[in-house]
Write a protein that binds this DNA or RNA. Structure first.
Length: 264
DNA sequence: ATCGGTACCTGCACGC
DNA sequence: TGCGTGCAGGTACCGA
């Protein structure tokens, strides 16, 4: 479900409500989403104070006292809900001194993990797309022979971009999703950097995109889906040229683009 | 080192 | 009504 703007929206809403708060108890149901032992994790969390919450790509990192991190990745359908109602897809319940925090996840692709410091796989992620300067972005691109769409989805290249914002930024930059990253001319790379920055900022501003079931911690939907130009608009006329939007597969992911505005 | 394909889950929309 | 198919904001892992 959630890409950088959705996770950022969650982090912004949640951080002021949990900063400095204490975890009274934790309960884990089912074994799939939690990495590590449920009883040990619950015991280690109980009584701990939350220093702060940060977003790291698509990961939410709860920094606890004692340099421990409770790391949450929402996968495709994960939700964090403050004071929601537990249901059949609730996999974790954190009871805080400021309320109840639930983790719901229908498809169970999300992961929860308690670790000392940041887990290695989170440390190994690429730079934040909203922080990387355009020259550094261009330098990284020059080294990659993969198709640009696949590269944008690769979290060790950039952290936080997913299927929606990859398609939307390529459309805005006028770049074909199958273009080879290293072969893009400098001006195209600069356009892509600008498009990516703007799309992500606008989406954060709109509270993210709610396609089927994304909601923030209070159950509110985002509104950026109404600004999508290509994502899930197969067959609809391109807003720039009127030609129908096409859908192809790139790395097994549905990829939407305008064949006229985004030439090979 | 880097790339692409597959596996992992549940639910929904669709055609027959 | 029910069944089969394809699709969905994700990453991990494997072989080439």
């Amino acid at each position: 479900m959630p890409e950088l703007p959705e996770v950022e929206t969650i982090a912004r809403a949640l951080e002021p409500r949990i900063r400095g708060r204490r975890i009274l108890s934790a309960e884990f149901r089912g074994l799939r989403v939690l990495r590590g032992n449920a009883d040990q994790t619950a015991a280690a969390l109980a009584g701990k104070k939350i220093r702060t919450l940060r977003r790291h790509g698509k990961f939410l990192v709860f920094e606890l006292e004692g340099d421990q991190c409770f790391v949450v990745h929402l996968g495709m359908t994960g939700k964090l809900l403050m004071n929601g109602v537990a249901g059949k897809h609730t996999h974790a319940i954190l009871s805080l001194d400021s309320g109840m925090l639930l983790y719901d996840d229908i498809r169970q692709f999300g992961r929860l993990e308690l670790s000392q410091g940041l887990p290695a796989r989170v440390r190994k992620l690429g730079p934040e797309p909203l922080e990387i300067p355009v020259d550094a972005f261009a330098a990284l691109m020059r080294k990659r022979k993969s198709r640009i769409k696949a590269l944008l989805l690769n979290q060790s290249f950039l952290r936080g971009v997913g299927n929606i914002y990859a398609d939307e930024s390529l459309f805005r930059a006028g770049i074909h999703p199958l273009a080879i990253a290293a072969r893009l001319r400098k001006d195209r790379v600069e356009r892509l950097h600008k498009a990516l920055t703007r799309v992500l900022r606008e989406a954060i501003e709109a509270g993210g995109s709610s396609i089927s079931d994304y909601v923030d911690i209070d159950g509110r939907q985002g509104s950026f889906q109404v600004k999508h130009n290509v994502y899930q608009r197969t067959g609809e006329p391109c807003v720039k040229c009127g030609n129908p939007i096409r859908r192809i597969l790139v790395s097994q992911r549905g990829t939407h683009f305008c064949p006229k505005c985004q030439r090979r």
